[in-house]
Design a protein around this nucleic acid. Structure first.
Length: 199
DNA sequence: GTACAGATTGAG
DNA sequence: TCAATCTGTACT
């Protein structure tokens, strides 16, 4: 409360994430990702997401019910963090969605910094945002509805409204191997944001 | 055990 | 256009 309420609104509850993955992917746009490091807050507005809907989605790690030490958290109920390393050097922040037993998630692809930053594009990509917020394997399986150092919040009232016409649906990035699934319009971003990736 | 490609990025 | 860098996955 107090001062923090001027910056961010209420934390999203577990139920928010337990809806269909496409719906959650769109509704996350405009929400604030809050990260607390040594009592300091880093806040980014979510401006780009991607839906991964295993086991039918060939681009998903959970395709064909694949399950491993890496992706097992995808099988939990919505609201947990699924984070993994790609290309040997970049962490990718995902949020588990839907209900237990359905291995689906949303990749958070870009943030627009709300707290003061020199570079508006400091988090304009999935690898970049994890670097900015210092996210790594230690965040694996954290509960966003409970954790004290990372959560998603409603924006302050004045910024709460997202015009549906601002939301663009596009093909997902970096999954050309996924046959017909690569053409699904499961990437969502806010048209006017300067922080969307690949600009 | 070994090979190989990947939900990316920034430099040239 | 390309290398960095390392783990999961699919084979031998």
């Amino acid at each position: 409360m107090e001062k923090i309420a001027l910056l961010v609104g209420k934390r999203l509850e577990r139920e928010f994430y337990q809806k269909p993955t496409i719906k959650v992917s769109k509704e996350l746009l405009g929400k604030y990702l809050v990260r607390k490091i040594n009592k300091k807050l880093l806040i980014g507005r979510i401006v780009e997401t991607e839906a991964y809907i295993g086991p039918q989605d060939k681009a998903a790690h959970s395709f064909n019910w694949r399950i491993s030490k890496r992706n097992i958290i995808e099988y939990a109920q919505g609201g947990y963090i699924y984070i993994y390393l790609v290309y040997g050097m970049y962490w990718q922040l995902n949020i588990v969605t839907s209900s237990a037993g359905r291995p689906e998630c949303v990749l958070i692809r870009a943030l627009e910094p709300i707290t003061e930053e020199k570079d508006i594009r400091i988090a304009s990509g999935p690898g970049k945002l994890c670097k900015w917020l210092k996210l790594d394997s230690s965040f694996y399986a954290k509960d966003l509805s409970q954790s004290r150092d990372i959560w998603v919040a409603e924006p302050p009232k004045a910024y709460a409204k997202i015009d549906k016409r601002q939301i663009v649906a596009a093909k997902r990035i970096g999954i050309d191997y996924a046959k017909e699934w690569k053409d699904k319009l499961w990437r969502f971003y806010l048209k006017s944001s300067p922080a969307v990736s690949k600009k």
